[in-house]
Computed example of a mutant assay.
Amino acid sequence: MSRIDSTALAFLDLRCPRCHEGKLFTTPALSPRFAQMPAHCPVCNQAYEPEPGFYWGAMFVSYGFSVGSFFIGGAAAYYLFDDPPVWVYILLVTLLVLLSTPLVLRYSRAIMLYLFGGISYNPDVAKTAPQPRG
């Protein structure tokens, strides 16, 4: 894996906040196990769960994404379908939220890790970090 020097690009690519090389998730976003994360970064051995229950806060971030989806879906239905019946709003917003769930969950966890994980980027850590056992 190649290192990404930009923190914003590493975040968008869902890479480790410490080394910007290791992937945060082990499976593709469209797989049934879209939320599966390794315990540590495969490159720098950074723990992806700084404390037990750390990702409970990601629920609030996910809620914010869902509220945004409601507004975007509702506005799109209103302007594209000329104020349709209520069932069209419900169907459109439900589909939008369900289809975006894998990405919302992944980016909610990444936001928690990048902003509240207490981890800073260190470009030299991959060279000196002890490798995980096992």
Rank of each mutant, 00 (worst) to 15 (best):
A129Y: 05
T27K: 13
D124R: 12
S62E: 06
A110G: 00
P130K: 12
C19Y: 08
Y107Q: 03
A8G: 01
F71L: 15
P38R: 06
A129G: 08
W56A: 13
F11G: 01
G64R: 01
L92S: 07
P17L: 03
V125K: 04
R133Q: 07
V43H: 13
W56C: 11
P38T: 12
C16H: 02
L105S: 09
V88H: 05
I4C: 06
P42D: 11
A8V: 14
A110K: 00
M59H: 10
Y55W: 10
D124H: 12
Y107C: 04
T128K: 02
Q36Y: 04
D82I: 14
Y79E: 14
T27N: 11
F71K: 05
T7F: 01
V86M: 15
Y63P: 03
H20S: 05
P38E: 08
S100G: 11
W56K: 11
D5W: 09
M112S: 05
D82A: 15
L105Q: 09
Y89T: 10
Q46D: 11
D82E: 15
F81P: 05
G73M: 06
V61R: 02
S66P: 01
A39C: 06
Y121Q: 04
Y48W: 11
A110H: 00
L91I: 10
W56L: 14
F60T: 06
A126Q: 13
R15G: 03
H40M: 08
G64N: 00
N45F: 14
K127T: 10
D13N: 13
A35Q: 13
G117I: 02
P132V: 03
S62Q: 08
R133P: 01
R3G: 10
G22H: 11
A29S: 04
Y48F: 15
E51C: 08
Y63M: 10
I119H: 00
H40Y: 15
I119P: 04
L99C: 14
P38N: 06
Y89W: 05
G134A: 12
L113I: 01
S108L: 08
K23I: 09
